[in-house]
Computed example of a mutant assay.
Amino acid sequence: MIPVCRIEDLPEGESVRIEIDDTTPAIAVFHTESGLYAVDDTCSHQDASLSEGWAEGCFVECPLHAALFDLRTGAPTCPPARRPVRTHEVGVVDGMIHVRPAVREDALA
């Protein structure tokens, strides 16, 4: 798992974008009233950073065209997005938020 930040450094209602390496897409980590979530940072509809969107409960709204994604599953809940974003495992160990990036399907080929 990759350390992100201390939980007190990511207040409820905030998000952070992390970049791991040149081969892994950036990940947006959200701290909402419903918990901690991590998804690919780029909206599946168009090139927009979801970490700059508006998160509430288990959903994030893309700042570009208002596509809404379920942070639990990555599924879009309204147009214009039609494809899901990838979700990632999030955990807290000794007060530090960690993310385990999901394996990219194209990396398995």
Rank of each mutant, 00 (worst) to 15 (best):
G57Y: 13
E14A: 10
A55P: 02
Y37I: 03
F30G: 01
S49D: 15
C43M: 08
P25N: 10
Q46T: 00
H45Q: 09
C62S: 14
L50E: 00
P63S: 04
L10N: 12
L50W: 02
S49F: 15
D41C: 14
G13F: 07
V29Q: 02
I20W: 12
H45T: 11
E56K: 14
Y37V: 01
A28W: 06
L64T: 00
G53R: 04
G53L: 14
I27A: 12
E52L: 15
E8S: 10
L36S: 09
H45G: 03
A38H: 04
V29M: 03
R17S: 08
E8H: 06
A48K: 01
G53M: 09
E12Q: 11
I20T: 09
E33K: 14
H65C: 11
E56P: 11
E8L: 07
I18A: 00
S49P: 14
A48M: 04
D40Q: 06
I27W: 04
P11T: 05
E14L: 07
E12F: 07
A28C: 12
P11E: 06
E12H: 05
P25H: 12
V16N: 00
S44M: 06
D22N: 11
I18P: 00
E14K: 08
V29P: 02
E52F: 00
D9Q: 12
P63Y: 11
E12R: 07
G35R: 09
I18C: 02
T32K: 06
L10A: 04
D9F: 04
P25S: 11
D41L: 15
T24G: 05
A38S: 09
P11F: 06
V29Y: 02
D47A: 10
E19H: 13
H45M: 12
S51R: 06
G13K: 07
P63F: 08
A48I: 00
D40V: 02
Y37M: 13
I27H: 12
A26E: 02
Q46H: 03
D21N: 13
E8G: 03
Y37S: 10
F59S: 10
T32G: 13
G57W: 08
Y37R: 01
E56A: 11
E8R: 07
H31E: 05
G57R: 15
P11A: 05
Q46F: 03
L64C: 08
H31G: 10
Q46Y: 03
T23P: 00
E61R: 15
V29E: 01
E19T: 06
E33C: 10
G13L: 04
V60L: 02
A48P: 04
A28S: 12
T24D: 06
